[in-house]
C-alpha cells in the first residue's frame, strides 16, 4: 500500500515537472530567408509585444550589428522604424538581455517562460507579437501575430513576403 502511494506520488510529480518545464512557454520561431541578391547583409530584427491597439508592451529581441567599432551599428536602428518609434528611441544601447547579434539565414528560436521578466508583468488581455525586419540595401517587413494572455495553447504562423520567412508563435500553458 505504501509502495503504491509512493509510485503514484512520483508519477504525479513527474507530470507536474514536465508540465512546468515545457509549459508556460512562449516560443517564437523567426526564419531569416535566403535571398538571391547581389549584396546581402543580415537583417536587423526587432521582436516585441504590443496590445491589440498597438501600444508597446515588452521588447523580446533586438538583433543588430554589434561587431562594428564605436557602436556604429546603432546608426541603422532607426530603420526599424516602427520599433524605433514605439520603443527604441527611448533606450540606451546596448540593452542588457535584449540586444543580440544579427542572425544568419535559417530559423531562430526565442523562448520565454511565462514568469520571465518579459512576460511576467503582462496583464491579461489580447496582444500582438510583432516582428520587424530591415536589411541594409534591402527592404523592410513587419509581421503581426495575435495572441491572448495568460498562456493557453495557441499557435500562430505567418509567412513573410520579402525580408522575413515564416514566423511562428507557439504558446503552451
Amino acid at each position: 500500500m505504501s509502495g503504491q502511494w509512493k509510485t503514484t506520488a512520483v508519477a504525479v510529480w513527474l507530470v507536474l515537472g514536465a508540465g512546468s518545464a515545457a509549459a508556460a512557454e512562449f516560443r517564437v520561431d523567426v526564419t531569416v530567408p535566403a535571398l538571391a541578391v547581389a549584396e546581402y547583409h543580415r537583417p536587423y530584427v526587432a521582436v516585441w509585444v504590443e496590445t491589440e491597439k498597438g501600444r508597446h508592451q515588452q521588447n523580446l529581441a533586438l538583433w543588430y550589428d554589434q561587431e562594428l567599432k564605436d557602436n556604429e551599428g546603432t546608426k541603422w536602428l532607426k530603420d526599424l522604424r516602427l520599433w524605433w518609434r514605439r520603443s527604441g528611441r527611448s533606450l540606451e544601447f546596448p540593452v542588457d538581455g535584449l540586444s543580440g547579434a544579427t542572425r544568419p539565414v535559417g530559423t531562430h528560436t526565442l523562448s520565454f517562460a511565462a514568469d520571465s521578466p518579459q512576460l511576467a508583468t503582462l496583464p491579461a488581455g489580447n496582444y500582438q507579437l510583432v516582428v520587424e525586419a530591415v536589411r541594409e540595401v534591402g527592404g523592410r517587413e513587419v509581421l503581426r501575430l495575435p495572441f491572448s494572455w495568460p498562456a493557453s495553447t495557441q499557435q500562430q504562423a505567418l509567412q513573410g513576403q520579402h525580408e522575413l520567412g515564416s514566423v511562428t508563435l507557439n504558446i503552451t500553458p
Binding site: 564605436d70 556604429e72 551599428g73 546608426k75 541603422w76 536602428l77 532607426k78 522604424r81 524605433w84 528611441r89
Partner: peptide, 8 residues
C-alpha cells in the same frame, strides 16, 4: 530627420 546611434 530621425536618427539613431552615437556619432550622428
Amino acid at each position: 530627420t530621425v536618427l539613431s546611434g552615437e556619432n550622428s
